[in-house]
């Protein structure tokens, strides 16, 4: 990345997080530039999801500070809502609203948060369903869809809020293998459009095709980071090598 004087989209400074005495995050610092696709990899329990969830304040750091697009993410409800309006999130288990149809899933927050009319939100929802490739599923309930389709609805739901940043928390790890590609394709298209993305995932194909930078985390720290070729090709740290040897063959 070329160093610029422009402020990063996400700035994470010395963030620590404890669960009891367990140190989930240990003074992590990280910048994400606008339009950058950052991938976070690491063994389970390394703190990658926790770090991601700190960005939109689903987890509250015990120390350090996070600034998203110039807004300080602290306990101020106004700041939290402002940040969440700009940050979309996709969960491992989709977390669609099971009592609402697909289109209503995508429209709910548009109407309640963005104050869009029913007609306007539905137009946006249909366009997004088209974009993620399942326009014909609008009137179905989430449980009637496959996992891959559900995750694509979840992405459309987040995009409907027109976020500047998208966070992906292991978006493909709850999916059957044959459905992973359809979700990754949607993410790939987003990345190519210039969306700022932070992705916690072990999908190496996605990393090679879309990620600008890969950060390897272990025991609550970022052990090393760099372009995907470098991290996967010539990792510097023993722990990175050990981890990669387990997930790559």
């Amino acid at each position: 990345m070329v160093a610029t004087s422009v402020d990063p989209m996400i700035r994470i400074e010395n963030v620590s997080k404890f669960y009891g005495h367990f140190r989930a995050l240990d003074q992590v610092s990280l910048d994400v530039q606008a339009g950058e696709v950052l991938m976070i990899v690491g063994p389970s329990g390394s703190g990658k999801s926790t770090l991601l969830r700190c960005i939109n304040h689903l987890e509250v750091p015990d120390a350090g500070r996070i600034v998203v697009d110039g807004i300080l993410v602290d306990n101020d409800e106004k700041h939290i809502n402002a940040v969440r309006a700009e940050v979309g999130m996709v969960f491992q288990r989709f977390e669609l609203f099971p009592h609402l149809t697909v289109i209503d899933n995508i429209c709910l927050a548009q109407q309640k948060v963005r104050r869009r009319s029913r007609a306007e939100s539905q137009t946006i929802a249909r366009a997004l369903l088209e974009k993620v490739g399942i326009p014909e599923q609008a009137q179905k309930y989430p449980e009637q869809l496959s996992g891959g389709q559900q995750q694509r609805v979840a992405i459309a739901r987040a995009l409907a809020m027109q976020p500047k940043i998208m966070l992906f928390d292991e978006p493909t790890s709850a999916l059957d293998p044959e459905m992973i590609k359809e979700v990754l394709d949607v993410m790939l298209a987003l990345a190519h459009e210039g969306m700022t993305m932070v992705v916690v995932s072990h999908e190496m194909g996605f990393a090679r095709n879309a990620a600008h930078r890969v950060a390897f985390m272990d025991q609550g720290r970022i052990v090393e980071q760099g372009p995907p070729d470098k991290i996967f090709g010539t990792p510097q740290h023993d722990r990175t090598q050990l981890f990669l040897s387990r997930i790559l063959h």
Partner: peptide, 16 residues
Amino acid sequence: RGQMEAGRSLGMSRWQ
């Protein structure tokens, strides 16, 4: 808990 988080991450308040 994920349902509350999904709602909150979309910018809805706790009450909404």
